[in-house]
Write a protein that binds this DNA or RNA. Sequence first.
DNA 1: ATAAGGACCTGCTAGC
DNA 2: TGCTAGCAGGTCCTTA
Length: 273
Amino acid sequence: MPELPEVETVKQVLAPQIMGLRIADITVNDPKVVARPSAEEFVRELKGERIMELERRGKFLSLCLEGGGRIVLHLRMTGSLLLTPPDFPLEKHTHLIFHLENGRELRFTDMRRFGRFWLIRVGEEDLFSGVSRLGPEPFDEDFSAAYLSSALAKRKSTVKSCLLDQGFIAGIGNIYADESLFAANIRPERPACGLSVDECERLAAAIREALLTGIAENRMSAEEYLAGKGRGYRSRYLNVYGRAGEPCRVCGERLLRAVVGGRGSVYCPKCQR
DNA sequence: ATAAGGACCTGCTAGC
DNA sequence: TGCTAGCAGGTCCTTA
């Protein structure tokens, strides 16, 4: 479900509420969601640990622990992380519950069970979650028009496939790929190596702007987040994603849908070239 | 080496 | 109304 902006929302909402709290106990309803180590070890080693900080990298979230280790998690398509009072109705597909020392629960719910947790022990290198294979963070200095231009030039696939490749750039998914390409006036099926320097500059700026808009539009209070069950992301601000067949907000042309890189893609045939 | 396609899961919706 | 096919915002693995 969530891409960089939505994971950022999760982090911003949860961080102030769980920082400094100890994990009193953990309930694992589906051991499969713990990718590493085993679910038993995960529970044993985390009981009594204190959560110090939350970090986001791409679409991954890390709970940094007092002891120096970290819990890394990825929500994939339909995962959500919700902080609830203990008597809050239990959602279907709740696979993991962290019982915190103040009585509240941090619950992981995931209809499609794609989401995963990894425990990275003190001093251990995280070679398993995929964090180490991520490309540049879109707001870091190492992501620039120059990077985009030289990296795209080496690719024979479509520009959209590159944007979805987490090793190329971290955090973009289908929504923000389509939104960025629309803002940059570039068609998703264009070969990456065929983009001009000017187009790469527009795309780099469009990516950052689309993500910043997503973060701003999805900013919400803890109450709103809980009411939306951790899935109450907004979409009214999106210009193309989910709007195939509707008129383009810029030129009025009918938005088209095509499959690019195996993913449904929406674009404006007039604005995007 | 890169790219396409299937697998992993469940639920929703459109169409017959 | 009921069934089915197709689709869904992600990633990994196998195959070509």
